[in-house]
């Protein structure tokens, strides 16, 4: 393996882990409601920007990070409560349009609360690159990979081992039967917005020290996360992770070996290719319910 390839691979995995976190957020909300939440990228922005403001105000990371995540989760819960819940019973397309509206609103609000500038966030543990097999990796990238791994493990424990997690899965498979066993399916939807928002915020905080953050980072990241989710198969946790990593690596490789001009196009090509040739993605099951 050449050092250059190794370098692209490490960078790709880092970006891919961020996409995976976003894709997980898309999938969790999709499972609860069959809605594609196009405001998912805004949670990334809120997490990153809130962390920037809170650390600038002098809070240590140990306080700023949980607060920034909580802030985004609250926005996610509010989005469900005040925008999605009142439209209960409306078609899925209507709900998706509501999330698009919410994303535009949140971005506008962020521009007012903060500004239009790019903001740096200090890396968690310094920025001395670490050498691995001829390539180098930033300590922050290790944070990205480590935290993503921990989250994936925590989520698979939650959905595979806890009653609440199983209830959320059951709701996504059969809403009527879930109601009949006494699962409060509205609560499930509410929780899934909070959980997805927290995941998005974590992604935003992890990546901000590497790429900087601003009021509109959510647009492109949201799109990439969506591409990763449909590549893996919407609704599949495993698919979200694999889709995110594949997209991240594909982007970095094509930027490295072809031209960086193609980097962002990869996500669009993947979206179109999946929709045309493989509508249920790599790990998806439900073919017919795509919007």
């Amino acid at each position: 393996m050449s050092a250059q390839f190794m370098q692209y691979l490490l960078t790709g995995l880092t970006v891919g882990a961020i996409y995976a976190l976003l894709a997980l957020g898309f999938s969790i909300i999709f499972n609860a409601s069959h809605v594609i939440n196009f405001a998912q990228g805004e949670f990334v922005m809120i997490g990153g920007m809130a962390a920037v403001s809170l650390t600038a105000a002098g809070l240590p990371y140990l306080l700023a990070v949980p607060l920034a995540i909580a802030a985004a989760a609250l926005v996610g819960l509010a989005l469900e409560k005040f925008a999605v819940e009142p439209a209960r019973g409306a078609s899925v397309v209507t709900l998706i349009i509501i999330t698009i509206g919410a994303s535009i609103f949140l971005r506008g609000l962020a521009m007012l609360v903060w500004d239009k500038n790019l903001h740096p966030l200090k890396p968690f543990t310094g920025d001395t690159p670490i050498a691995i097999g001829g390539a180098t990796i930033l300590p922050q990238s290790l944070w990205v990979l480590g935290v993503t791994l921990a989250i994936v493990l925590a989520l698979s424990w939650f959905f595979g081992r806890t009653l609440l997690g199983k209830a959320m899965l059951a709701t996504s498979h059969n809403r009527l039967a879930a109601e009949l066993v006494g699962i409060n399916v509205r609560m499930v939807l509410f929780l899934s917005f909070g959980l997805s928002a927290a995941l998005g915020a974590i992604a935003g905080i992890l990546i901000a020290p590497i790429t900087l953050t601003s009021y509109d980072v959510g647009v492109m990241l949201g799109l990439k996360g969506f591409a990763a989710a449909i590549l893996g198969g919407l609704g599949s946790g495993m698919g979200a992770v694999v889709g995110g990593l594949v997209l991240g690596i594909a982007e970095t490789m094509s930027a490295g070996y072809l031209s960086s001009a193609y980097k962002d196009a990869i996500a669009f090509v993947i979206i179109l290719a999946v929709l045309f040739f493989m509508p249920s993605g790599l790990f998806g099951k439900r073919g017919g319910e795509r919007v």
Binding site: K166, L169, A170, H173, N174, L176, A177, A178, L180, K285
Partner: peptide, 9 residues
């Protein structure tokens, strides 16, 4: 009606 079990679980 129709059993409605949680198929994948």
């Amino acid at each position: 009606e129709g059993r409605q079990v949680f198929g994948p679980l």
